[in-house]
Nucleic acid binder design. Structure first.
Lengths: 157, 157
DNA sequence: ACTTAGTTGTTCGAATTTGAAAGACCTAGT
DNA sequence: ACTAGGTCTTTCAAATTCGAACAACTAAGT
């Protein structure tokens, strides 16, 4: 049926494998995380990013960029995490438009508790399937892809 | 802050790059597709899968597996596409529990119209950033990952 | 100071996605 | 034939996500 080429079979196969498997990977990690903790993948990601930030806090906008979340999605999501006590929200000191999300004690505990399980899951479904050269290669390739995507997005504004 | 290791820096970097960039990739492709057509990425994917299937039809369950959609999500999504005339739904001849989604003329047209734009987008944001060896490598790696994930899922049932 | 344009984060209604039933049907063993 | 135990898809309500519009503020030029 489909005579829609413009991509070679090799290119198409690689493209599809990446899309499909990364989707499966996310789904599996999400499931594992929910089974061993009270956190979603997004929750976990928020906690990690905050824990790594100076003073364990990030501007909403910055957090949204890192998570690749729309602004409204982040507002909502941080709201749910705030209700659960995992993060707090504070007005930004030097810019009165902004606010920042701050990691709480409870949030840090939740992260510390979930991390071993989550990392085990990452290992099982990702790292263990790859050798060192492949890991290095993936890092190179996806870092490059990410940079190009960020550049492209900046372009089209 | 985070002393949560258990993954080496190399492993962690690769993992993060893959997750983040594949997310960015999806988002960009989705945006491009919406700009040049009336289709979402999921719509497009449905149309491709149907167009490739024998007699341009697939059981709902099979389609859900290929798309990595939950059953209820697929029901809803096919519903919206049906309203737009892109697909039709028919009872399954040999299994009265089931139904199948069928590609319509309009669906095929929509796919043919969207494909060049979409493929150009895939090329720009993915293929063009990679050389042949990398593409082959990605195909190998992600095919393997996908197989493992399917196996793991079958396990845990 | 005074516009004017751009940012930042939130809000709101609509669209989508989830997960737990439920309904209808198939399959195997009796 | 007749269950008992699956399977396939849909339904429903609740949770999430999107996108446009908004309010508050900042930045830059005049």
């Amino acid at each position: 049926m489909s005579d829609v080429r413009s991509l070679t079979p090799t290119e198409m196969a690689a493209w599809r494998a990446v899309i499909e498997s990364s989707q499966r990977l996310l789904t599996q990690l999400e499931d594992d995380l929910r089974e061993t903790s009270e956190l979603s993948f997004a929750d976990y990601h928020v906690l990690v990013l905050l824990s790594e930030a100076p003073r364990q806090r990030l501007r909403m906008g910055e957090l949204a960029n890192k998570l690749i979340f729309s602004p409204s999605r982040l507002t909502y999501h941080v709201g749910t995490m705030e209700k659960r006590g995992l993060v707090a929200r504070q007005p930004c000191p030097d810019d009165r438009r902004g606010s920042e999300a701050v990691l709480t004690e409870a949030g840090l505990s939740a992260l510390r508790e979930a991390a071993p399980h989550h990392l085990r899951s990452v290992r099982r479904h990702f790292v263990d399937a790859l050798d060192d050269a492949e890991l290095a290669e993936l890092n190179t390739i996806f870092t490059r892809l990410g940079e190009r995507l960020i550049a492209a997005r900046a372009q089209s504004r």
